[in-house]
């Protein structure tokens, strides 16, 4: 994937030089290994700083909300679905965007690599299927597939769904993955077991809201957790408050979540809150065959009324 970098720089340089767009949103190298950061560039000279590898997991759709200028954005499969979602929800116009599709082979979970490495990693490079990490007294090579983010390992939309230009040829989509195995496990539990499971899952939460901030769906001007009149949810570490935050946030993402993994990736204490949104993704898929952000034509199931609705009460 590192091979994309040159092409990405070239595209960004061309778009800015030809004044096709005012801003390009991409990634640049972060200050620590395996942490690329989003960057906004407005001049062709700055395009040299753009990079692409397995550490570009942050969802760039998050930076498009209510922007006014013409923007080029580099989009993986999940980013492109969230961009489609943004367009459907009138958060940005399609005409404002020049979407550069980046076929994705999955992003790397830096935490897992850090766990595998015998010491602190000071340098990490990707070469094909290999990740080479270096530290003070060691040098190790890991297989890329072993270190994929959990959502990437079961992703079936690796190619961008909308794009104006592609960085490379489409990659093969995964077909033999069981996307909802973990959700089914929870569904099979008794209510009591489930209560204990969620309690344990959410216990470490420190209410930093990093998951919400990283999520492209969470663009409300004032989030319900920040509202003080009325105060919907307490600010404490009390399990009930933590639950209220996580469960309500998940419900706000129903029929909209693309399972991009931004929330889990951003969590400083490693909570897999994707389990909550995934259950709702599964319900939307089972009941309406819906997957969020696959095109710009279809309205999401939760804002659609059909006269032939099978439910009696709604007629």
């Amino acid at each position: 994937m590192i091979a994309y970098t040159d092409k990405i720089q070239e595209i960004a340089r061309r778009l800015l030089k030809d004044c096709k767009v005012e801003t390009v949103i991409g990634f640049r190298k972060g200050s620590v290994p395996m942490m690329n950061e989003p960057c906004f560039i407005t001049s062709a000279d700055a395009a040299d700083g753009l990079v692409w590898d397995g550490n570009c997991g942050i969802n760039l759709a998050n930076y498009l909300t209510n922007r006014k200028e013409k923007i080029a954005v580099f989009a993986k499969g999940c980013d492109s679905r969230n961009i489609a979602n943004h367009i459907i929800e009138n958060k940005i116009d399609r005409e404002q965007l020049y979407i550069v599709g980046v076929p994705c082979q999955g992003m790397i979970e830096k935490r897992r690599i850090r766990q595998m490495a015998p010491g602190e990693i000071t340098e990490a490079t990707e070469d094909g299927d290999e990740i080479r990490v270096k530290g003070r007294d060691f040098e190790e090579v890991y297989n890329r597939d072993e270190a994929l983010q959990k959502n990437c390992a079961v992703c079936v939309h690796r190619n961008p769904v909308i794009h104006d230009e592609m960085v490379a040829d489409e990659v093969e989509e995964q077909t033999d993955v069981d996307r909802f195995a973990d959700v089914r496990e929870i569904e099979a539990m008794s209510p009591e077991e489930r209560r204990v499971f969620f309690r344990k899952l959410l216990e470490p939460c420190i209410r930093c809201y990093a998951c919400r901030n990283a999520c492209p769906l969470c663009y409300c001007p004032t989030c319900f957790v920040d509202e003080s009149q009325p105060q919907w949810v307490g600010k404490s570490q009390n399990p009930t408050d933590i639950w209220t935050f996580h469960f309500l946030r998940a419900y706000h993402c129903a029929g909209r979540c693309t399972d991009c993994g931004a929330c889990e990736r951003a969590c400083p204490v490693g909570i897999n809150m994707r389990l909550l949104t995934k259950k709702l993704n599964k319900d939307a898929f089972d009941q309406w065959g819906w997957e969020a952000g696959l095109n710009l034509e279809e309205r999401p199931p939760l804002d659609t009324y059909r006269p032939n609705d099978p439910e009696e009460f709604i007629k």
């Binding site: 209510p191 009591e192 077991e193 489930r194 209560r195 204990v196 499971f197 969620f198 309690r199 639950w243 469960f247 009460f313 709604i314």
Partner: peptide
């Protein structure tokens, strides 16, 4: 979430 059956009800009125 672990709420026992019968505690939560939905109706259309």
């Amino acid at each position: 979430m672990g709420i026992e059956p019968g505690r939560l009800h939905f109706s259309w009125i």
